[in-house]
Design a protein around this nucleic acid. Sequence first.
DNA 1: GATGAATGAGATTTCATTCAT
DNA 2: AATGAATGAAATCTCATTCAT
Lengths: 207, 207, 207, 207
Amino acid sequence: MYSKFLNLDQEKQDRIINAAIKEFALKGYDRASTNEIVKEAGISKGLLFHYFGNKRQLFLFLFDYCYEIIAEQFYQKINLAEKDFFTRIRQAVMIKMELLTTYPELFKFIEEAYLEDSPEVKVEVDKKVKGLNDANFGKAYEGIDFSKFRDDMDIKKVLKIITYTFEKLSEEEFSKAKLSPTHHIDYEKVFQEAEDYFEIFTKCFYK
Amino acid sequence: MYSKFLNLDQEKQDRIINAAIKEFALKGYDRASTNEIVKEAGISKGLLFHYFGNKRQLFLFLFDYCYEIIAEQFYQKINLAEKDFFTRIRQAVMIKMELLTTYPELFKFIEEAYLEDSPEVKVEVDKKVKGLNDANFGKAYEGIDFSKFRDDMDIKKVLKIITYTFEKLSEEEFSKAKLSPTHHIDYEKVFQEAEDYFEIFTKCFYK
Amino acid sequence: MYSKFLNLDQEKQDRIINAAIKEFALKGYDRASTNEIVKEAGISKGLLFHYFGNKRQLFLFLFDYCYEIIAEQFYQKINLAEKDFFTRIRQAVMIKMELLTTYPELFKFIEEAYLEDSPEVKVEVDKKVKGLNDANFGKAYEGIDFSKFRDDMDIKKVLKIITYTFEKLSEEEFSKAKLSPTHHIDYEKVFQEAEDYFEIFTKCFYK
Amino acid sequence: MYSKFLNLDQEKQDRIINAAIKEFALKGYDRASTNEIVKEAGISKGLLFHYFGNKRQLFLFLFDYCYEIIAEQFYQKINLAEKDFFTRIRQAVMIKMELLTTYPELFKFIEEAYLEDSPEVKVEVDKKVKGLNDANFGKAYEGIDFSKFRDDMDIKKVLKIITYTFEKLSEEEFSKAKLSPTHHIDYEKVFQEAEDYFEIFTKCFYK
DNA sequence: GATGAATGAGATTTCATTCAT
DNA sequence: AATGAATGAAATCTCATTCAT
């Protein structure tokens, strides 16, 4: 599909991809300008459309591209031998933070893509997201020793409470960072806070 | 500020407000067209700008307008004499659902506004939202009997876990509804599920 | 439909219409440039689309406009009291030539429109043309004394032979003119040639 | 001129020619895309321009190519020994219909080319057409016994009337077919109608 | 107060043609 | 001979905002 593009020399591919990710991450699908992308990438207007056909396909290509890189890195780093749920989650959070620091634009892009509601891409993105979530849920909990959890509570709901809490916490941390002048996240503080929650959850949900 | 507008006869005000809310709720800030708004409201292009100056101010006016209506209704209906935390929350959820059914467009608009990331309005909306949350947090927990909670856990964090869970649950329910063909939410099922979580939380967090 | 446009002062309407007719007549639908039209008309890009929505609707508006003017003039000048077929046709040809000289661009535009095969307008134009032809066929032959024609031939076919011949003759005359350096049609010669054909037809088809 | 192209192996020549004819016949000169042609022919962009220089020359080459094939076939099939005018014409019509069924794309292409008014090719095509008509007029009437015609009418004009009639009839038949859903021409009916006209013409123009 | 004509920058996309390899 | 990446002008159309009336 995008084989023409993938045959380009790596440096040019990167220039185009980075320019496009930056523009979409900054402005969202609708406001992003293909004009700005080609200007930033230093290529001609025609070339972008030669490779990607139209703005929509470019966006969806980037979504797959970003997701693949992040997922690949993630599963390479995570230790599936670890059986304890909270230790595993702790690991996952740390890796996510690490990747966020290494690839901030990719994450920003993916985040924007999740929230995108331009009708041109919404349906397609939602489909992709649903597929990915289903696939990852299985993998994230692979090999976990669930026998440590209390038996008098629906374990699925308990896992949801935990997941929701950490998702919301990181969302909050991000929006705080966005509103602050430096856009800086104090990871040390975040980890410490997460530990407090881990403690509460262990007390409540483990036998 | 908008006194010129507020001196209009009620019927015309409503026509304009409803047209604008509908358009913004449907398309988000960027894609919303002032052309469509004036067409739907049956007024001239110039008039809209006479009253609101520009698109951005119109949007922010509507945000305040919607928020005020919803908040006013909310605090009119909630029973602050109820001291038990979970009963109070249960009440709040029911009232929210009720209002959602009565004013679907207002909610849709507010929801869109929260997610809006057009730079023209994002900062302003985020500021308003932060202010509102701070204000409401106090009110929502007014008079609650916190002595029922366990003493060995940071109560602020416990409240956050509970709040996060219900927020995420309702977010999920909404996005499921958006993806479904009928856009229908099965309130009965949602309440039942909420009760299950209440039970878990009571077991975990009450003495 | 185009009432906004028709409320403009006549001079501006004319400027726009003339510029558009000229461009379409010269280049056909596809090659005609809305940019050129606005430049020639001395208006802004937006205004054209404010009035006509898009290129296609502008074209179809012009078709109706041109046709109406020509048809109105034609039926105003033709003498329906004349009962003899050939005298009537002779009249029609003369009026057509006259109008062609007065409104050369309108005719050129209509002619181009008939031949247009851009899929965007073809179907619509074909529909209009069919409707017009059906309507006009009746009017053109209104009150003619057909009893002068021979009885041993299908009169419909005879009329077709005559019509076809004059249509082809004028087509040929036009394409000759187009290929000539001056684009000039020698009407005197054309009338003389037409008379020769009238003579042949009278000899063949009248009793 | 096109010797480079003509030295290619036949199969590749055909692929290119067929792809190009199809595209031009379908869309006309302007809308035809060289991109589509090379894709359909399975050759590279550069190659097409290597052989034909530019789009215009490709089009004119195809015009000659199509015309030659059709003309060659036509004069191979027509029986010049037949001296009667109407029998000869009858023959010509049948052969044309036959060829139309065998080479529909070539005819469609030629037909489009006749009507083409893109300035880039119009003049050139018109010149070719004029030359061809002059040449064919002579050949088509070669050996005809004109002594059967009435002496009191200009025979050139009589022949024109007949030719025009059949040309217009077939044009009408074609445009009817184009507007119909099946695009189908009922040849049987056309022949029958032609016979009626032959009868009228014989009655009128033969001694 | 009320109108709506007018603006013009900027958006995405197409396409014949070139040229280094 | 053959490739296909690269160009960039030009196309249509949108839209918030202004301003004379």
